[in-house]
Amino acid sequence: MTTALVTGASRGIGRAIAVALSERGDRVAVHYGHDREAAEETRSLLTGDGHLVVGGDLADPAGARAVVDTALEAFGGIDVLVNNAALAPSPATLHKIDETSYEHWDQVWSQMLDLDLRAPANVSFLVARALISAGRPGAIVNVGSRGAFRGEPDFPAYGAAKAGLHAMGQSLAVALAPHGIAVTSVAPGFVGTDRQEQTLAGARGEAIRAQSPFGRVATPEEVAAAVVYLTSPQSQWASGAVLDLNGASHLRT
C-alpha cells in the first residue's frame, strides 16, 4: 500500500488532495500547522483506515523533522510527498513596495520564504533521504502558483517563493531521478477554496472568474486530480514538469 504525507492538509487544496489519495488506496498523513480540529475533520473524510494526523511548524527545521519522523514511524516509509503547506496572500501579508514599511516588508519576506520555500526544501530532503536509504522509488509534488510566472505585485514574496519552489522541484527532479524518485510541481491559478468563498461572492468575484475564458475558477478537486496523476507510477516520465492549472488564464511561452 502506498503511503503519502500531505502538508497543509487541514482544509482547501490540501484536504482535497488527501481525500483523493485516500480514494486511490493510499494511507495518508494529514499534516496541519495550527488547526488540529480541521485536520481531524479531513481525516474523517478519508477513504479506508490507517490514516494519521500530524501537527508541526514546518518553518522550524526541527518541526519539519518531527513531522516526517512521525509519519515514517507510523507508516514504515513515505512513498509520496505533497508539499502544499504555505503562507498564502492575505490582508495580513500584503506588502506593496510603494506602500508598506521596511519593517513589514522584511517580516513578510522572512515568513513567506521560510514556510513557502525553505520548509518544502527541508521536508523534501528528509523524505527523499528516507526513500534513498530504503531503496524505494517515490514521488514528490510541489503545489506552486500561477503567480510565479505572471508576477504578484501586491505579494512579491509569495511570487518569488513559488518561483523558487518550481525551480527547486526541477533541480531535485534531476538529482533524484537516479534513485527512482520523480519530482513535479503544479501551478494553480485562482482556486475556489472555502477560504476564498467570501472573495468570490463579493465585488471582485466576477472579475476573478473572468480571468479564465471558462468564466470560472478551479475547484480544489481539479488540483487534487492532477496530483493523483503526478504521484502515480505512470507519471514518472513527467518528472521535472511544472503543470499549469489555471484554465488558460495565463499562458506561458
Rank of each mutant, 00 (worst) to 15 (best):
R43I: 03
H166M: 00
V54S: 07
H166W: 10
T199L: 12
A182V: 09
A241K: 00
M112A: 14
S124R: 01
N122L: 13
S110N: 06
M168H: 15
A173V: 06
A71K: 10
E23N: 12
I208V: 15
A86E: 15
A177Q: 00
E152V: 11
G8K: 05
S239T: 14
M1Q: 05
Q111S: 07
T193I: 01
E221K: 07
A157F: 14
P156C: 01
L117W: 15
A74P: 01
L126H: 04
K162D: 07
H95D: 00
P120G: 09
E152G: 11
S124P: 02
A139W: 02
H51S: 01
V191T: 15
E73L: 02
P91L: 09
A241H: 00
Q211D: 09
A139N: 01
D57Q: 13
A88T: 15
D106M: 15
A29K: 10
H104W: 06
S185H: 08
I78G: 07
G192A: 12
V242Y: 05
F75P: 03
P188S: 05
G55I: 10
I13G: 09
A85M: 04
H250C: 08
F75H: 12
A71S: 03
S44C: 03
G192I: 06
V54P: 01
E206L: 14
R136K: 15
G180F: 09
A173G: 10
P153Y: 01
S124Q: 04
V217W: 06
P220V: 00
G50N: 02
A128K: 11
F190S: 07
D57N: 14
M1F: 03
S22P: 11
R24M: 03
G192P: 11
P220D: 02
D194Q: 13
D57R: 13
L58S: 13
S235A: 15
A85Q: 06
A157K: 05
A18V: 00
S90W: 15
A39N: 04
L5A: 03
S110V: 04
P120E: 08
Q198D: 08
A163P: 12
A20Q: 05
E73R: 06
L176T: 06
G12K: 03
S249I: 12
R65K: 11
T100V: 15
E221D: 06
L52N: 00
S124M: 04
V191L: 11
V141W: 08
F155N: 03
E222M: 13
G33L: 13
R150A: 14
A59L: 04
G205E: 04
A59R: 07
T199G: 09
I208L: 12
E222N: 08
